[in-house]
Lab assay of single mutants.
Amino acid sequence: TEEFVRLWREAVRHNQTLHWNGTDFIPGDEWAEEFARREEEKL
């Protein structure tokens, strides 16, 4: 979602874990980066 992408970019900028829907998205984590890339492509 647009909100997820916005929060993810913020988390990456501050190198912080994003807690989203009970899942931890960690900047630099391969799975999280791939998920975020797919979400961005949907926008």
Rank of each mutant, 00 (worst) to 15 (best):
1 T>H: 11
1 T>I: 14
1 T>S: 14
1 T>K: 07
1 T>F: 11
1 T>Q: 09
1 T>D: 11
1 T>Y: 12
1 T>P: 14
2 E>N: 10
2 E>G: 11
2 E>I: 13
2 E>L: 14
2 E>D: 11
2 E>V: 13
2 E>H: 13
2 E>S: 13
3 E>V: 10
3 E>D: 12
3 E>Q: 10
3 E>G: 07
3 E>I: 11
3 E>S: 09
3 E>K: 07
3 E>T: 12
3 E>W: 10
3 E>M: 11
3 E>P: 02
3 E>A: 12
3 E>N: 10
3 E>H: 08
4 F>H: 00
4 F>P: 00
4 F>D: 01
4 F>S: 00
4 F>V: 00
4 F>E: 00
4 F>Y: 03
4 F>I: 00
4 F>G: 00
5 V>H: 05
5 V>N: 05
5 V>I: 15
5 V>F: 08
5 V>M: 13
5 V>L: 15
5 V>P: 00
5 V>S: 05
6 R>T: 07
6 R>W: 10
6 R>N: 08
6 R>H: 09
6 R>C: 15
6 R>I: 08
6 R>Q: 07
6 R>K: 11
6 R>D: 06
7 L>D: 02
7 L>Y: 05
7 L>R: 13
7 L>V: 02
7 L>I: 03
7 L>K: 09
7 L>G: 03
7 L>T: 01
8 W>M: 02
8 W>N: 00
8 W>I: 01
8 W>L: 02
8 W>Y: 02
8 W>K: 00
8 W>D: 01
8 W>H: 01
8 W>G: 01
8 W>A: 01
8 W>S: 01
9 R>V: 06
9 R>D: 06
9 R>I: 08
9 R>E: 09
9 R>H: 13
9 R>M: 09
9 R>Y: 12
9 R>Q: 11
10 E>I: 10
10 E>C: 14
10 E>P: 01
10 E>Y: 10
10 E>S: 04
10 E>D: 11
10 E>V: 06
11 A>Y: 05
11 A>Q: 02
11 A>P: 00
11 A>G: 00
11 A>T: 02
11 A>C: 15
11 A>M: 03
11 A>R: 02
12 V>D: 01
12 V>G: 01
12 V>H: 05
12 V>S: 06
12 V>T: 06
12 V>W: 06
12 V>E: 04
12 V>Y: 05
12 V>I: 10
12 V>R: 09
13 R>T: 11
13 R>N: 09
13 R>S: 11
13 R>M: 14
14 H>F: 14
14 H>A: 14
14 H>I: 13
14 H>G: 10
14 H>S: 14
14 H>K: 15
14 H>M: 15
14 H>L: 15
14 H>E: 11
14 H>P: 00
15 N>P: 00
15 N>E: 05
15 N>A: 09
15 N>H: 10
15 N>D: 06
15 N>I: 04
15 N>L: 08
15 N>T: 05
15 N>F: 08
15 N>Q: 12
16 Q>Y: 14
16 Q>N: 09
16 Q>A: 11
16 Q>M: 14
16 Q>K: 14
16 Q>E: 11
16 Q>C: 15
16 Q>P: 01
16 Q>D: 05
17 T>I: 15
17 T>F: 06
17 T>L: 09
17 T>Y: 05
17 T>G: 05
17 T>R: 08
17 T>Q: 05
17 T>V: 15
17 T>H: 05
18 L>R: 00
18 L>S: 00
18 L>K: 00
18 L>M: 08
18 L>F: 09
18 L>Q: 01
19 H>Q: 09
19 H>W: 08
19 H>P: 03
19 H>R: 13
19 H>C: 13
19 H>L: 07
19 H>A: 06
19 H>E: 05
19 H>Y: 08
19 H>F: 08
20 W>T: 01
20 W>I: 05
20 W>N: 00
20 W>Y: 11
20 W>Q: 00
20 W>E: 00
20 W>K: 00
20 W>A: 01
21 N>E: 11
21 N>P: 01
21 N>R: 15
21 N>L: 13
21 N>T: 03
21 N>H: 13
21 N>V: 04
21 N>Y: 12
21 N>S: 08
21 N>M: 15
21 N>G: 11
21 N>I: 05
22 G>T: 02
22 G>R: 04
22 G>M: 05
22 G>L: 04
22 G>Y: 04
22 G>N: 10
22 G>C: 11
22 G>W: 04
22 G>K: 05
22 G>D: 07
22 G>I: 04
22 G>F: 06
23 T>H: 14
23 T>C: 15
23 T>Y: 15
23 T>K: 15
23 T>G: 06
23 T>W: 14
23 T>N: 12
24 D>F: 12
24 D>Y: 12
24 D>T: 12
24 D>I: 14
24 D>K: 10
24 D>S: 10
24 D>H: 07
24 D>A: 12
24 D>E: 11
24 D>R: 08
24 D>P: 08
25 F>C: 06
25 F>W: 04
25 F>H: 07
25 F>G: 01
25 F>S: 00
25 F>V: 01
25 F>D: 01
25 F>T: 01
25 F>P: 01
25 F>A: 00
25 F>R: 01
26 I>G: 04
26 I>N: 11
26 I>C: 11
26 I>Y: 09
26 I>M: 12
26 I>F: 09
26 I>H: 12
26 I>S: 10
26 I>P: 05
26 I>D: 07
26 I>A: 12
26 I>V: 13
26 I>T: 15
27 P>C: 10
27 P>L: 04
27 P>N: 02
27 P>A: 03
27 P>Y: 02
27 P>V: 04
27 P>S: 02
27 P>T: 02
28 G>P: 03
28 G>W: 03
28 G>F: 03
28 G>Y: 02
28 G>D: 03
28 G>V: 01
28 G>K: 03
28 G>S: 04
28 G>C: 08
28 G>Q: 03
28 G>I: 02
28 G>L: 03
28 G>M: 03
28 G>T: 04
29 D>E: 12
29 D>W: 04
29 D>C: 13
29 D>Y: 04
29 D>H: 08
29 D>I: 07
29 D>P: 03
29 D>N: 11
29 D>S: 09
29 D>R: 04
30 E>V: 13
30 E>T: 13
30 E>M: 12
30 E>K: 14
30 E>D: 12
30 E>A: 15
30 E>N: 10
30 E>W: 12
31 W>I: 07
31 W>Y: 08
31 W>R: 08
31 W>F: 10
31 W>D: 06
31 W>S: 06
31 W>A: 09
32 A>H: 02
32 A>E: 00
32 A>D: 01
32 A>W: 04
32 A>S: 15
32 A>I: 03
32 A>Q: 02
32 A>Y: 03
32 A>M: 03
33 E>S: 05
33 E>A: 07
33 E>T: 07
33 E>K: 06
33 E>P: 00
33 E>H: 10
33 E>N: 07
33 E>Y: 05
33 E>L: 07
34 E>V: 06
34 E>Y: 08
34 E>K: 09
34 E>N: 12
34 E>L: 10
34 E>D: 12
34 E>T: 09
34 E>I: 08
34 E>H: 08
35 F>E: 02
35 F>L: 04
35 F>Q: 04
35 F>A: 04
35 F>N: 01
35 F>C: 09
35 F>P: 00
35 F>K: 03
35 F>Y: 14
35 F>R: 04
36 A>Y: 08
36 A>Q: 01
36 A>N: 02
36 A>P: 00
36 A>W: 07
36 A>M: 08
36 A>D: 01
37 R>P: 00
37 R>V: 04
37 R>I: 05
37 R>D: 02
37 R>C: 14
37 R>S: 07
37 R>F: 05
37 R>G: 04
37 R>L: 08
38 R>V: 09
38 R>D: 04
38 R>Y: 07
38 R>L: 11
38 R>A: 11
38 R>M: 11
38 R>Q: 11
38 R>T: 08
38 R>P: 03
38 R>K: 13
39 E>N: 08
39 E>S: 13
39 E>W: 13
39 E>F: 14
39 E>R: 08
39 E>V: 15
39 E>I: 15
39 E>A: 15
39 E>Q: 15
39 E>P: 02
40 E>V: 13
40 E>R: 07
40 E>L: 14
40 E>A: 12
40 E>P: 04
40 E>Q: 12
40 E>H: 09
40 E>K: 07
40 E>W: 13
40 E>D: 05
41 E>C: 15
41 E>P: 02
41 E>H: 11
41 E>A: 14
41 E>N: 11
41 E>R: 13
41 E>V: 11
41 E>L: 14
41 E>T: 11
41 E>K: 13
41 E>F: 12
41 E>D: 10
42 K>F: 07
42 K>P: 02
42 K>R: 12
42 K>L: 08
42 K>S: 08
42 K>Q: 07
42 K>H: 06
42 K>Y: 07
42 K>A: 09
42 K>N: 07
43 L>K: 04
43 L>G: 04
43 L>A: 06
43 L>E: 04
43 L>C: 14
43 L>F: 09
43 L>W: 10
43 L>M: 11
43 L>I: 09
43 L>T: 06
